[in-house]
């Protein structure tokens, strides 16, 4: 199908975006990479009166090294992140995850900020942001504010951004030197939506787990960090016993979806298996 008619605006500054959102509110939709919004418009699941295209705002595309944080502009393409030296060095877990995001031609349009603001349950980028405990910057009529990853995604495709706010920057804390990591995903075909995905980042100190960060996507209405599984590992050796216990804790902690792609039981099973595999690979 084809999109329903809409008015099109292509502002060149964030200030103009905020003004347009202030004027049109819920009538307007922001167009980032368009890899979710345009198909939804083609199906007429989304019929915005006004489309505000963010692709003409050069100030929103960058990858910056800033002390202990990597700052990525919301309109930075996923493909740029895939090939970024800064990301390869300081956020290797994001580089690993980005290769699972859709396909090459969707990554060349899809953006970091768009994926996070869209908050699809199966999306890898919000999962990594949650695992690393990052935050985003958003701009609205009263200026800029920051939202921590843990407070950002409220439900399937629902974030804590207000109708008149635009996500401008994503801030990923750099991984500690020597941090171990793995991303495991199960989908029917490479690049399809994850039925289950798990991200693991470990910091080890003298053979003992000093810090564990575990997050899952695809299994629940929205991606989440799984504190119960992290708690199992902290202060212990990452060995078959603790891995099995953490994987079981992760499977217990999720609230699994039950849909045509997979039953709730199967998603719990996948969470346990993928958490175990990710921990094994990270600890190896």
């Amino acid at each position: 199908m084809k999109p329903a008619a809409f008015d099109y605006q292509a502002p060149t500054t964030v200030e103009e975006v905020v003004a347009l959102l202030g004027r049109h509110g819920g009538e307007a939709r922001l167009l980032a990479g368009g890899q979710t919004l345009v198909p939804m418009m083609n199906f007429r699941l989304a019929t915005p009166a006004i489309v505000v295209d963010l692709n003409r705002i050069p100030e929103l595309a960058y990858i910056k090294n800033d002390n202990d944080v990597v700052r990525i502009g919301a309109m930075t393409r996923q493909r740029a992140v895939e090939f970024s030296d800064i990301v390869a060095r300081d956020l290797p877990v994001l580089q690993a995850a980005i290769r699972m995001v859709g396909h090459l031609p969707t990554r060349s349009r899809g953006t970091i900020g768009g994926s996070i603001a869209n908050a699809d349950a199966a999306a890898e980028i919000p999962m990594v942001l949650q695992a690393l405990g990052g935050e985003v910057s958003v701009r609205g009529p009263s200026g800029e504010r920051r939202i921590a990853a843990a407070d950002l995604i409220e439900d399937a495709m629902i974030t804590s951004l207000a109708e008149d706010e635009v996500l401008t920057e994503v801030r990923f804390p750099k991984m500690a030197p020597g941090a171990r990591f793995a991303v495991e995903e199960f989908s029917r075909r490479h690049g399809d939506f994850a039925i289950a995905a798990v991200t693991v980042v470990l910091e080890m100190d003298k053979g003992v787990c000093a810090s564990a960060r575990i997050a899952a996507a695809g299994v629940s209405a929205c991606s989440r960090r799984i504190a119960a599984a992290e708690d199992v590992l902290r202060g212990r050796a990452v060995d078959p016993d603790s891995i099995a216990a953490a994987a079981a804790a992760a499977a217990d902690a999720i609230e699994p979806l039950d849909d045509r792609n997979a039953s709730a039981d199967y998603r719990r099973h996948l969470t346990r298996i993928l958490t175990g595999r990710a921990l094994q690979r990270a600890a190896a």
Binding site: L31, Q35, V38, P39, N42, D53, P105, T106, S108, R109
Partner: peptide
């Protein structure tokens, strides 16, 4: 429908012509 858009592969059904 994939074409090369400024040298990069992109789905032309997921872009507006005006873009």
């Amino acid at each position: 429908c994939t074409v090369l858009f400024n040298g990069e592969a992109a789905r032309s059904c997921l872009m507006l012509a005006v873009q």
